[in-house]
Simulated scan of single mutants.
Amino acid sequence: MPKTEGAATLAAVLAEARRRLAAGDMDDPALEARMIVEHFTGTARKDAIATPERSVSAGEIANIDDAVNRRLAGEPVHRIFGWREFYGLRLKLSPDTLEPRPDTETLVDAVLPFVRETVRREGHCRVLDLGTGTGAIGLAIAAQVPEVIVTATDISAGSLATATGNAARLGLAARFIPRVSDWFSAVDGKFHAIVSNPPYIEAGAIAGLQLEVRLHDPVRALDGGADGLDAYRAIAAGAPEHLDENAIIAVEVGEGQGRDVALIFSEAGFRMASAHRDLAGTERALVFGG
C-alpha cells in the first residue's frame, strides 16, 4: 500500500491494491482490489468515481495490506471477509463450511416452484437440507417462503454451529432445525422435499483443484469418493423412507455427472422430473420424483 506521512487517497490505495494483485497473477485483479478496498473502507464503487481523493486512514490501509497479502497467498476474498452472499442472504463462513457459490442458486431456483405449490396445497412445506454447510440452500428457501420448515443436517458439528448462527442472524432460527447426522442416520419423519449439494469431486482429483479450493474448503465437503458419486448413492438409498407422498429430491451435480447421477436415482426407483442449467450453461441441478 502507498506509504505516506498522513492518510492516502482512495484512488491511490485502490490503484496499489490492483497493481499488487495483477502482479500476483489474479484472474480479475481490478474486481478483487475493488472488493477488498470497499470492504475495509466502507465505501462503494460510486465513491471511487465521485470522491477519489477521499482519505483512507492508516488503520484501513493496514487492513487492506493484510487482506492483499492473504489473497496473494491463495486465500479466497470471501474467506478473508468471513462471509459470502447467497441468494441475497449474507452468510458467515467458517473453516468447517464450503463457501457457497452462485452456481448453487440454480438448485434453489429449481425447487422453489414445488415448495410454493406445496404450501398453496397444504399450508406448509417440510424441507430436509442434507449436508447443509453454511445453511445456504435451506435458509434461502426458508427466506423466500415463510411457511417452510427446514431440517438441516451435517456430519460436522462445526458446520451446523455456523449454519445455526446464520439462521439466527437472518431471523430464521424458529424454522431451522439443525441436526448432526451422517446423511439420514439421525433423521426422523417425512419431508415434502429433500435438497442437497453433496461432495462430488473425485477423490483423486482433489489435489489438482485450484489453490483457493484445495486449501480453504474442507476436504470432507469436496470428496465424493473414487468416482465422485458416493454421496448420491447414499442419498438415493436412504431417501425413500423419508419422503412424503408426491415429494421431490433435488441435488446439485458436478459438470458431466448428470447422466450418472440420474442412473443412480433411477435404479433406486426415482424418475427424473427436471434438469436445470446454471448461468454458464452447465447442467447443475437435477430434480427427481417418486
Rank of each mutant, 00 (worst) to 15 (best):
R19N: 04
A48L: 14
Y87D: 10
F270P: 05
G204R: 02
E267D: 10
G131A: 11
T151W: 10
V77D: 04
A262R: 14
T41H: 13
F114H: 04
I49M: 10
G189M: 04
T104H: 13
A50Y: 00
E53C: 12
L160M: 01
E283M: 15
C125T: 09
E252A: 07
A237E: 15
A157T: 07
N166T: 14
V187T: 07
A17E: 09
S196G: 10
L172R: 00
D244F: 05
V56A: 10
G269D: 04
A221T: 06
A140C: 12
H39Y: 15
A168W: 14
P2G: 10
L139Q: 09
A12Q: 13
G59L: 04
V111R: 02
T97Y: 06
A142V: 13
A11S: 04
F40Y: 15
I80V: 04
L128Y: 02
A50Q: 03
K92W: 11
V56N: 03
D103Y: 00
P76G: 10
P29Q: 14
W83A: 11
R45D: 11
N166H: 15
P178I: 05
F265Q: 08
L14C: 12
E99H: 06
T9Y: 04
A280P: 07
L139P: 06
V111M: 10
T51N: 05
E32W: 12
V37W: 01
R214L: 03
I137V: 14
R84M: 00
C125R: 01
R19Y: 12
T118C: 07
R214M: 07
D154P: 05
G82F: 08
M272W: 00
T97I: 01
A22Y: 01
H124T: 09
E53V: 06
D66V: 11
D47K: 05
R259I: 12
T162S: 06
R220H: 07
P240E: 11
V219F: 07
F191D: 04
I177T: 05
E255H: 14
A136Y: 09
V150D: 01
A12V: 13
P146N: 03
A237P: 10
K190R: 13
E85K: 01
R284D: 13
S181H: 00
A50F: 01
G189H: 03
G24S: 08
G208V: 08
E147V: 01
S266I: 04
T97W: 01
R101F: 05
E267R: 05
V253S: 00
T134D: 07
G238M: 11
D230I: 01
A234V: 14
E75G: 08
I49V: 14
D223K: 12
L107D: 08
T162D: 04
G82Q: 07
G258I: 05
R84A: 02
E32L: 13
A221C: 01
G131C: 09
A207T: 02
T153M: 03
R284F: 07
L286T: 11
F86K: 04
A30Q: 13
H276N: 14
A142H: 10
G238Y: 12
A15T: 04
F86G: 03
I206M: 00
L229C: 09
L263M: 15
P113K: 09
V56G: 06
V148S: 00
E16M: 11
E75V: 13
A23T: 06
